[in-house]
Nucleic acid binder design. Structure first.
Ligand code: FES
Ligand code: FES
Lengths: 146, 146
DNA sequence: CCTAACTGATACTAGTTTACTATCAGTTAT
DNA sequence: ATAACTGATAGTAAACTAGTATCAGTTAGG
């Protein structure tokens, strides 16, 4: 059960970088190098972020992408939905006898419940929170080294 | 994000049937017909249940499989793990700068937390509970029709 | 005004997974 | 004997994943 695919993984990391450098245009090449993500793959991913107005782009030298949506409003859930399609149930077997006789399925509501839970959890994880977590770790580090 | 694949879906339904007919040998053909599951696919699935000692088989005419593990002890989680492999994290990018610098990742613990939650929820859903749910629905139906 | 560093758009591809299908051998109740 | 079963295993089409490759257009700086 793979909750995140590579492109979602990469996009989260890219957005963390962009959130930490808010206001600046960062090139795909720079993100690719700093995060060890395949360049062309990352470019596709960034194009989708542009289409979804999470970042804006600037062409030419010194160009790149700049984050425009507030990191506090970018949830991992919307990134998953953007790159992996909607969270959706596995297909229903309409002609299944169990369901035919009882009108509704006993398994599916349970799965639906769990899926809703997963969606809720992912909706709570925002880019802002992840950036803050990085900050907290740095503080601890500074404290230990003092 | 597909939590259940077809084989897990089919095996749950097959086990519901077998649990409702505990003690009896039911053939793959019969389950296949009653649940509208592809026969050969179902046979593979049942063989795995046999290997995992959840059912026993009897060859020849009048044969089939019989459930031997208590339905209260068969969780959907173990079926998922049996048919979809362990719930596992998407691969880690060890050389990732964010993680290199901070020793640990900020995203991964969150995903791990959610995955553990999903596993816990699926471990609570047993075949026995699903069979009971079917029973409850039947009762409601009887009550309404009275 | 040239050129190097950028994005825009899109086509292609190898490998893996999913959801099956097919085959042949052996078993057992009637 | 034979029809209805399981045991074991090979094959396969389609979809998905994780990329790669190309070419066209844009822009800052010398
Ligand atoms: S198979 Fe469709 S709701 Fe159960
Ligand atoms: S990439 Fe490995 S723990 Fe973050």
């Amino acid at each position: 059960m793979k909750l995140l695919t590579k492109n979602t993984d990469y996009v989260v990391r890219a957005l963390i970088v962009l959130a930490m450098k808010r206001g600046q245009f960062i090139s795909a090449r720079e993100i690719s190098k700093s995060q060890n993500t395949p360049y062309q793959f990352l470019r596709q991913i960034l194009q989708k972020l542009i289409q979804n107005k999470i970042v804006v782009s600037k062409e030419g030298i010194g160009g790149g992408v700049r984050i425009v949506k507030s990191p506090s409003k970018i949830s991992v859930l919307e990134l998953i939905e953007m790159f992996q399609g909607n969270l959706e149930l596995s297909d229903c077997m309409f002609r299944n006898k169990i369901c035919q006789n009882r009108k509704t399925c006993v398994l599916r509501p349970e799965i639906k419940r769990i899926e809703n839970n997963v969606a809720l959890e992912f909706s709570k994880i925002t880019i802002e929170k992840l950036v803050k977590k990085i900050g907290e770790k740095d503080e601890k580090k500074l404290y230990r080294n003092r």
